[in-house]
Design a protein around this nucleic acid. Structure first.
Lengths: 224, 224, 224, 224
DNA sequence: CATGAATGAGTATTCATTCAT
DNA sequence: CATGAATGAATACTCATTCAT
């Protein structure tokens, strides 16, 4: 069925282009940033509706209300845009994670972990759609190396969190323990997003995750 | 050389057909099965080299040593082939998982769990590439519903495993506990495949996973 | 009309951009119109050489001197282009037919009919190749309903012609008489185009057609 | 270029005329004839449902209940089958036409003509679907020369009919008059089949056609 | 800086035709 | 003789990318 393209094309429905004379030739900076933001938002919207495989530059530009040429001004191709979006979102999340344990430095491990888990669960539960999208996209567009880099960033954050407790895991086990801790929380949250609809309540997610992470750390403490 | 079609061989290396004199109808069947199998194998090989997005029917057929028309004879399109491959592989793994705890029916939970984990780790560790591929593919080609269906199949297997122990988790917690148990083992193994190169040794994978799952189950037993 | 890409009209109706519209729009438009016209002409040329069944989009685009993508920009597929060409040509012919009897309103039937036949024969005789092509194409590409629509348009024109005479056929016979009148002229002209090479002279075509149509109308007048 | 297959594609070549059908390669007769008949019937059935453009050998064979290979045993390609069907049907009709005026030899022109028109209208009205199909097919598959040949056959038959009357048209006008006579009857009947649904009653078809043909012949007699 | 018409390489898909059984 | 699995040439169609305006 050729040409059956629905073509969302919010372009026509969207805010009229700056036809007013006074706004005409003043793209100083605000216009440029506006286009970039518009493209980014359009990307997420189209991604949600079509999935990455069917997301075309034409449609993203159209939904953003700019020409395809403008897309190329800001992003050389779809992967760049996708990578940028992922990177920004992940960086933001990692920052929150790091902030979460700063104020618990030197406190017992259990307390530090709870602080981190609280933030993690809240952050994802606050916008499950976006995170589902991100988890999926990551594997599709990221080169394996890029995925690994992001993953390691998260593992590092966990390691720093665990290390700042008054009773951290043994130094020689730290890297592996941090990796498993992240594997559990990331695995649990992402898989719940992808396989349950609606997802468990934030409380359930948090409770079960607490049991798993604390249980694991207890095991490590007792059995190495 | 433009049209230097590789076409090596699959055809030339073809094993002489075992034409048992008494079976008249066989030749066609075995030829058919040969093409189908060749396509399947070629698919996995190309997938490994190019990734799903760059896997073309032309190349799969070429590597399989058959014409493109033959591809369409057996699979209407790439998604069908991918879906079939995933489905078959997953079914096989689930079968192994189920067999693993049959012989431990009525034994303590820890023993049952260890049996399952042994098989799981061994199965995946035996062919990490294939499983990495499969994990990635699943999200790209499966409709979300199909992914969920497969996932639930695994969760169900875990539930049956946990339930057959002499000291199973409380009945009302069983579903959630099975889900988390699977999340931990699946998350740990798949993420290790995707983010570490080379992956941890089978022993390390197994040890750490044991700590996590047993730790979680202990937590469930003590705190609900 | 399947796959009629709406974009064409959308483009033409588009609101002028904020910058000096009269200078901005022109070049693009004329380029656009040039491509569309070139494709149309190329289509007819290829049709003449190859016949519809062997007319490929690639060749039409190539003959037009544009890329295949450009073809799809203006016509979603070959049928659209064919339908558009037929429709335009037929509309033009019908217009000529209608104009031909306007100036004979209220005159005797024979005079009105002669005026119409003069125009019909001249129009077709002026470009026999094109009309041969069109008659053939119509059956191949038009859905039966579209063919019928065009046909009825012509019958309607004839009915209006007959009705404007001072001595028209009886009202209750008008529709049928118009249909036969058209059947005779269309049948005669199209069949002569298709089965004689070279076709009869314009004078012969006209004379014989006059005998047939007038003879029929006389019969109607005398015998009903 | 290795794969430069010539692909002369019999389909593209002229339609080979049916050659001496009585001696096929000695097929037990009954079985062979059965397959051939089945294919022919299947062809018409599929043609009716799909139209010629979408009629595939696979489907015709499948509907006929034979293998595709068998199709090639009897007809080398679709055009041959189509040509054979057309040719046979037309020959049969022409035979009926010729028989119709044999018994009116030496009678007045009007009587001879009525006899011919009676048979023509009855023959077509008896199976409108088939004739609609045939009219359409003829232009699509026949090379122009083949169409002309069939057409001339009909014109010849009309000429013989007109000539056997006691008051035939003048000798030097005979060819042209026969041509127009056929153009009127063929045009009227075929166009009614194609553009009206349901078609006019047999009586109406016959009455109107009589007016037209007799009117024309009267005109010829009076005005040349 | 922004635009979008034009481009054509690349892909999926169809289907007439062959030939081993 | 009949069969239908295998074939691959041929074609429609998509969409990232460029560049004249």
């Amino acid at each position: 069925m050729p040409n059956a393209r629905v073509r969302i094309s919010a372009r026509d429905q969207q805010v009229p282009l700056p036809t007013a004379p006074e706004v005409r030739r003043r793209p100083r900076q605000s216009r440029a940033q506006h286009s970039e933001k518009a493209l980014r938002d359009a990307f997420v919207r189209v991604l949600l509706e079509r999935g990455y495989a069917k997301t075309t530059i034409r449609e993203v530009a159209s939904v953003a209300g700019v020409g395809v040429g403008t897309f190329y001004e800001y992003f050389g191709n779809m992967r760049s845009l996708a990578a940028k979006w992922i990177s920004d979102t992940v960086k933001d999340a990692e920052l929150k994670l790091r902030q979460s344990f700063e104020s618990h430095r030197g406190r017992p491990l259990a307390e530090v972990v709870d602080a981190v888990l609280d933030v993690q669960v809240k952050n994802i539960a606050a916008d499950t759609q976006t995170w589902t999208l991100l988890f999926t996209l990551e594997r599709q567009v990221s080169a394996p190396s890029a995925f690994r880099r992001h993953y390691d960033t998260w593992v590092d954050a966990w390691r720093d969190a665990l290390a700042c407790a008054s009773d951290p895991p043994p130094q020689d086990r730290l890297a592996m323990v941090a990796r498993m801790t992240h594997a559990i929380s990331y695995g649990w949250l992402s898989q719940c997003m992808l396989t349950t609809d609606p997802p468990p309540s934030e409380a359930t997610l948090r409770h079960e995750l607490g049991l798993a992470v604390h249980g694991y750390l207890t095991g490590v403490a007792r059995l190495g």
